[in-house]
């Protein structure tokens, strides 16, 4: 089943210096349980594409399907609830709510929906991500890598259908970065989740099941597979 799909998506920004086609007719699809990379240089539109997939922004044209649902049809608050229940996010920076501690940050998506945590699963994640001692800490006390790990824990805890990660290793050193991607990959297979990673790093992309290359708002024909 196609968990993510876009059909001819366009995104046009109007700037004082003219129109910018961030996305120019992008049609992709991602199967259930895949670990996918979207790779492109800076300004290629990859982050914009991720935003479309996550419902964080509206396309100027075209349709985006998540779990078979046309998310363009949903109203703002409905889309928010949809995201809450189906999509997990990991960003390059500013991942955590500054006023909440680590535990509360991890629990946030669940609590927003009034759902309780899966205790056993939570313990598992915490141990795997080595966050047990940090549960009471505030985000500003953590290093970049630790913050990313918390973000991943949060994304995993809610067990969403899709996890979207935008340059999750961008600010990290290579060792931590590898940790992060490895974790994502193992959870993808373990929990049968679909994970989409946006990156400009070729090596990371090689670790995924499936690579989508994007340049100047267009997907390059002939998707490479590794």
């Amino acid at each position: 089943m196609k968990v993510l799909e876009t059909r001819n998506v366009r995104k046009i920004y109007h700037t004082p210096s003219g129109e910018v086609h961030a996305l120019d007719g992008v049609s992709i699809s991602v199967e259930d349980g895949q670990f996918v990379a979207i790779i492109g240089s800076s300004g290629s539109g990859k982050t914009t594409l991720l935003n479309m997939l996550g419902g964080l922004d509206n396309p100027t044209d075209g349709v985006v399907f998540v779990r078979g649902e046309d998310i363009g049809r949903l109203k703002v608050d409905e889309l928010t609830v949809f995201r809450r229940r189906n999509i997990g996010f990991v960003f390059q920076n500013y991942n955590l709510v500054p006023v909440l501690n680590v535990y509360e940050n991890i629990m946030l998506p669940l609590q927003l929906d009034g759902r309780g945590p899966d205790e056993r699963f939570f313990e598992q994640i915490i141990d795997t991500l080595k966050l047990r001692e940090k549960l009471d800490s505030m985000p500003h006390m953590l290093s970049g890598g630790q913050q990313q790990r918390v973000a991943i824990a949060r994304a995993l805890s809610a067990k969403p259908a899709v996890i979207l990660a935008d340059e999750p290793t961008g600010n990290l050193d290579s060792v931590t970065g590898m940790e992060v991607v490895g974790l994502l990959k193992s959870s993808a297979s373990l929990l049968h989740q679909t994970i989409v990673v946006v990156t400009h790093n070729e090596e990371i992309a090689q670790m995924t099941d499936h690579i989508i290359r994007i340049e100047d708002g267009k997907v390059r024909g002939g998707k490479d597979e590794e």
Partner: peptide, 17 residues
């Protein structure tokens, strides 16, 4: 099948669950 309604309501959440 998954409901087409995504409301911040108890019934919608239960349906989803």
């Amino acid at each position: 099948e998954f409901s087409l309604e995504y409301k911040d309501e108890l019934s919608s959440k239960i349906h989803y669950q």
